[in-house]
Simulated assay, not measured.
Amino acid sequence: MKENNWYTFLEGSKKLGKSHSYLYKSMKDRPELFKSTMIQKHGRIWLISDEGLNYIKKNTKKEGDRLRTAILKAVYKTNYHFVFTPFNLNIF
């Protein structure tokens, strides 16, 4: 069985090529990515395994990917122009 190497969140973030606080912020924003078998806490230090780093790398959005490309293409192809006006035009 392959032995897992463990890294602090700082080391893991740098290994992923991200900022030093990337894993801390990711864990706060999306805790569902961090399975209990992939992370450990020793005192105030969080550790993450190789398996955890690979899992996070595979399951996070890549830089430059657009979230709503299909929706944006549909909007740009329409011939209708949307104009938003206030409902109540009685100023006085």
Rank of each mutant, 00 (worst) to 15 (best):
K61E: 01
E63Q: 06
V83M: 08
F9A: 04
K41H: 07
L23C: 06
K77V: 02
A74N: 02
F82H: 00
F87D: 05
S13Y: 07
W46E: 10
A70S: 00
Y55W: 10
I71D: 10
Y22E: 06
N54H: 09
D29Q: 08
S26N: 08
K57M: 00
G52S: 11
F87K: 04
P31W: 07
S19N: 09
F84S: 02
E51H: 09
N90R: 07
K15I: 13
I39A: 14
F84L: 03
N5P: 01
L10G: 08
L72Y: 00
N5A: 14
W6Y: 15
M1L: 04
S49A: 14
N88E: 09
G43T: 11
K28S: 08
T78P: 00
G17K: 01
I56N: 10
I71S: 08
K18R: 15
K58T: 13
F82K: 00
E51V: 14
Y76S: 14
G43A: 07
D29Y: 08
R30E: 07
S26G: 13
K2S: 12
N5M: 09
L53Y: 13
F82M: 03
K15Y: 10
L89A: 05
Y24L: 09
K25Y: 15
L23G: 10
D65A: 07
K77Q: 05
D29N: 08
E3D: 05
Y22D: 06
L89V: 01
